[in-house]
């Protein structure tokens, strides 16, 4: 699917909800819990959580692949993990910054 920055998406296999922060210009096969994610408004599609894609997501964490140019912010945690096809996205480790405001 072609992603758009700001787009809301959800997992069909767990409770994960997310928003696209950075999108590649090309089609990607973004999956959560082993199944392609769907638009946030689609609340009906349901799939079984794949055992090999059940690492879980955390609210407020960003998952990314810099080579592909994709970054996803998880707005609601779930049991599945985020991947492009079979390759899991990496948890983006933010450098701890002191508060400036």
């Amino acid at each position: 699917m072609q992603l758009k920055v700001g787009e809301k998406l959800r997992s069909t296999a767990c409770t994960t909800e997310m928003i696209v922060v950075r999108a590649p210009g090309t089609d990607v096969d973004l999956r959560c819990g082993g199944h392609p994610v769907v638009p946030g408004a689609d609340k009906d599609t349901k799939n079984e959580l794949a055992a090999d894609a059940s690492g879980g997501t955390q609210t407020g964490k960003r998952y990314a692949d810099d080579e592909i140019g994709i970054e996803i912010l998880v707005t609601k945690a779930g049991q599945g993990n985020l991947a492009i096809g079979g390759a899991p996205l990496e948890l983006k480790q933010a450098k701890a910054l002191p508060s400036s405001d």
């Binding site: 700001g6 964490k61 912010l73 933010a94 701890a96 910054l97």
Partner: peptide, 23 residues
């Protein structure tokens, strides 16, 4: 919206404050 959201995501972590913190 993209400027402000980017600023927040780039400068702080979600839920990183202890419960007793106040600014």
């Amino acid at each position: 919206q993209r400027h402000l959201v980017s600023y927040v995501l780039g400068s702080c972590e979600f839920m990183s404050a202890e419960e007793d913190e106040a600014s």
